[in-house]
Design a binder for these strands. Structure first.
Length: 424
RNA sequence: GCGGGCGUCGCCAAGUGGUUAAGGCAGCGGCUUGUGGCGCCGCUAUUCGGGGGUUCGAAUCCCCUCGCUCGCCCCA
């Protein structure tokens, strides 16, 4: 193919689809505003080390999915594969935590070099929430309820909240030892992927989809049993909080999540309608990350929501209509054409949505386009009108007669006209 | 990185070895040089993702390649 194409896994969002995205974005903004959460925007490009240290060297994301390159200063740079590390970096860099806990959200493109499939692109978009400086189980619940209510408000049905606790760092370390020891004993019965992960990332073995491995795992030491009393109490509080808000959830002891920084609460919101990539929103607590990246010891919870997957679910329902046009300006002849844009501008300044036909085509053509544009009204300007500085206002959606009026009266007439019902 | 499916006009799509590559939608032009929605007429792929091969002859068969897609893996 001779013509240029977008890079694999990097998709264009065409005008017919942007209204739905805009609806999601503005709905999310509303939820964040009402929950006193402020927006933060960070660069798309960061020093590679941030992600290597933050997300974990052993993770798939860091190990094989990052867009990494040397810039002209020979510095290793990486297109962000997720949002949390950048937000934490920014919060540390600007000393935001010295002003107290931070309630933040972010949105935008993320990049992961993976094979594209349904619900998975190389450039994809997330909206994320981070609550930094909050240790209490209630903040876990609040983070979850914000995501839950946002999805409900958007009208996404058929969602399931899956919940697990990974325990404290100590719990995990202790459990990790037990698990590795057990896995070593059963090494020969594991699938190849799981064998490779015994030391690199043993908890991920729990989440293996290999059927034989899953059967075997029934006899493995359980993470839940390794939790300290405090961790168990904490997890119970999260569950009680969700119960109190009547948010249904299912416990999933195999939910471990792929990023190293999680501790205690881990959760995913999934849909059965998404195919293989079922997770719409995933998150959890990451009490160690801020300190690990050089900041003050700071407890935190957060989540990220996949826009493409969400939109996929939404677009199975009713389409969002584009905003209708109020007026379409039709003009022909030099004097008339000179008047068209000023007339359109006048109406736009009054808040009306106006398209101005600049083709100079025959009136018939312009009316055809006016009709197809969906505009309620057409303003017609020919040489006769131009000479008198008037326009003809025609209701395209009713049988009411045309009005001939001076430019100064156009906006008023339009506003009055828009009140009247269109043809059924 | 590994499997499976697919690739004919902007979109949908017929055609499966015989030479002029159906049709529909959209678009453009006309009937209709100041009034749209309907209708009618016309135009829009020397070419079938790209390259190579087989053949007298290929969109149709073979090879390579690119892309899309679904799944594995992983994750949002």
């Amino acid at each position: 193919m001779a013509s240029l194409q977008s890079l694999r896994g990097m998709v264009d969002l065409l005008p017919e689809h942007t209204p739905l995205w805009q609806r999601v974005e503005s709905t999310a903004r509303g939820h964040f505003r009402r929950a006193a959460i402020q927006e933060i925007r960070t660069p798309l490009l960061e020093v590679t080390e941030l992600f290597a240290r933050g997300i974990g060297e052993a993770t798939d994301v860091v190990g094989k999915e990052m867009y990494t390159f040397l810039d002209r200063g020979e510095r290793s740079c990486t297109l962000r594969p997720e949002g949390t590390a950048s937000v934490v970096r920014a919060v540390i860099q600007h000393g935001l935590l010295s002003q107290g806990p931070q309630r933040l959200w972010y949105g935008g493109p993320m990049f992961r070099y993976e094979r594209p499939q349904a619900g998975r692109q190389r450039q994809f978009h997330q909206i994320g929430l981070e609550l930094l400086g909050f240790a209490d189980a209630r903040s876990d619940v609040e983070a979850i309820v914000i995501a839950w209510d946002l999805l409900a408000d958007l009208g996404v049905g058929g969602l399931a909240l899956e919940l697990n606790s990974l325990g404290s760092a100590d719990d995990r370390a202790r459990y990790r030892e037990q698990l590795v020891a057990w896995l070593e004993v059963h090494r020969h019965q594991l699938d190849a992927d799981s064998q490779a992960r015994i030391h690199a990332n043993p908890l991920r073995v729990l989440d293996s989809k290999h059927p034989d491995t899953q059967v075997l795992l029934a006899g493995a030491p359980a993470l839940a049993d390794a939790l300290s009393e405090e961790s168990q109490e904490r997890f119970a509080q999260v569950q009680a909080g969700l119960d109190a808000l009547e948010i249904p959830f299912v416990l999933n002891p195999r939910l471990v999540r792929g990023l190293d920084y999680y501790s205690h609460t881990a959760f995913e919101i999934t849909s059965s309608q998404l195919g293989a990539q079922a997770t719409v929103c995933g998150g959890g607590r990451y009490d160690g990350l801020v300190q690990q990246l050089g900041g003050p010891a700071t407890p935190a919870v957060g989540w990220a929501l996949g826009m493409e997957r969400l939109v996929l679910l939404l677009s199975q329902g009713a389409a969002v209509p584009a905003q209708p046009l109020d007026l379409y300006v039709v003009s022909r002849g030099a004097a008339a054409e000179a008047l068209a844009l000023p007339a359109a501008r006048l109406c736009r300044r009054a808040g009306l949505a106006v398209e101005c036909d600049a083709s100079g085509a025959a009136f018939g053509k312009q009316f055809k386009r006016a009709d197809r544009s969906g505009a309620r009204f057409a303003a017609v300007i020919g040489d006769a009108e131009a000479a008198e500085q008037v326009v003809v206002l025609k209701d395209l959606r009713s049988d009411r007669p045309e009005q001939r009026l001076p430019l100064a009266e156009l906006v008023g007439a339009l506003r009055a006209g828009l009140e009247a019902p269109p043809r059924a």
